[in-house]
Simulated scan of single mutants.
Amino acid sequence: MKIMIKFFTILFVAFVFVSCSDDDNGPEPLAVESKTATNIPAPQTGGQPTSDPIGGPFTKFSFSTGAVTTSETEWDIAFRGTTIAVNGGAATGTNDEPERNGEAGAFVATGTFASITDAASYTFAQDSDSGFAILTGSDNGWYNYTPFPVNVISPIPGRVLVLRTHDGKYAKLEILSYYRDAPAEPDGMADEARFYTFNYVYNPNEGQTTLE
């Protein structure tokens, strides 16, 4: 009888130990997401071809939902015309810009989208009164502008936006097109501009920097 009691005691202790070990492992990490966002609108008022000052609200985007959002806080990047804001830092002094209240930042990396596999080695800039973290203007950030008569905004090949989100997670983004429905050869005089299509990879796990 004593032998049986001792046996079941040992068995119970072993079961508790294994259960605690399993608990210590914690939950399984969430899958890294790889998606394409299509026709994200980025309207603006003013600017070319007029001399009126540029204005209008930015379109805010959340990587965690993979969609446009109207939230004042739960957004990561925001688009207006060719300008991209991040939800981190301070106001730039641009008309109608959104309030930054997160810790988002950006780094414009050079390489193929597939070759950018981890965000750990990058130093992230934030928006500030010195300008946007993702530089504006042709050849400075993500795009190239070919003037009239071509009049086309083209993503610069090999430019990848590596991003820290508003809540400290990580993503990478490759802009494919600035025109509605992403035509292979956009016509600057006919195709509707200010619609972003981009590939992105988002890691939803706290403290993880891998992007593959």
Score class of each variant (00 low, 15 high):
residue 2 K to T: 04
residue 5 I to L: 12
residue 9 T to I: 05
residue 10 I to M: 14
residue 12 F to N: 12
residue 12 F to A: 15
residue 12 F to S: 15
residue 15 F to W: 09
residue 15 F to N: 04
residue 20 C to D: 02
residue 22 D to R: 10
residue 23 D to Y: 14
residue 29 P to H: 06
residue 31 A to C: 00
residue 33 E to K: 15
residue 34 S to M: 08
residue 40 I to R: 10
residue 42 A to Q: 03
residue 45 T to G: 11
residue 48 Q to K: 07
residue 50 T to H: 08
residue 51 S to A: 15
residue 54 I to D: 00
residue 57 P to F: 09
residue 58 F to T: 05
residue 60 K to R: 15
residue 60 K to L: 07
residue 62 S to P: 00
residue 64 S to Q: 08
residue 67 A to E: 13
residue 78 A to N: 05
residue 80 R to W: 03
residue 83 T to K: 08
residue 88 G to N: 06
residue 88 G to H: 03
residue 90 A to G: 14
residue 92 T to E: 00
residue 94 T to H: 02
residue 94 T to R: 13
residue 96 D to C: 12
residue 96 D to A: 14
residue 99 E to I: 06
residue 100 R to S: 09
residue 104 A to N: 10
residue 104 A to V: 03
residue 105 G to L: 09
residue 106 A to Q: 10
residue 112 T to Y: 05
residue 115 S to M: 02
residue 116 I to D: 04
residue 121 S to Q: 13
residue 121 S to A: 15
residue 125 A to Y: 00
residue 128 S to L: 12
residue 130 S to D: 13
residue 137 G to N: 12
residue 137 G to P: 01
residue 143 Y to E: 01
residue 143 Y to R: 08
residue 150 V to P: 01
residue 157 P to Y: 07
residue 158 G to V: 11
residue 159 R to G: 01
residue 164 R to M: 15
residue 166 H to S: 15
residue 172 K to G: 02
residue 172 K to T: 07
residue 175 I to R: 05
residue 178 Y to T: 03
residue 180 R to F: 13
residue 182 A to Y: 12
residue 187 D to Y: 11
residue 195 F to I: 02
residue 197 T to H: 03
residue 201 V to D: 01
residue 204 P to R: 10
residue 204 P to Q: 06
residue 210 T to W: 04
residue 212 E to V: 14
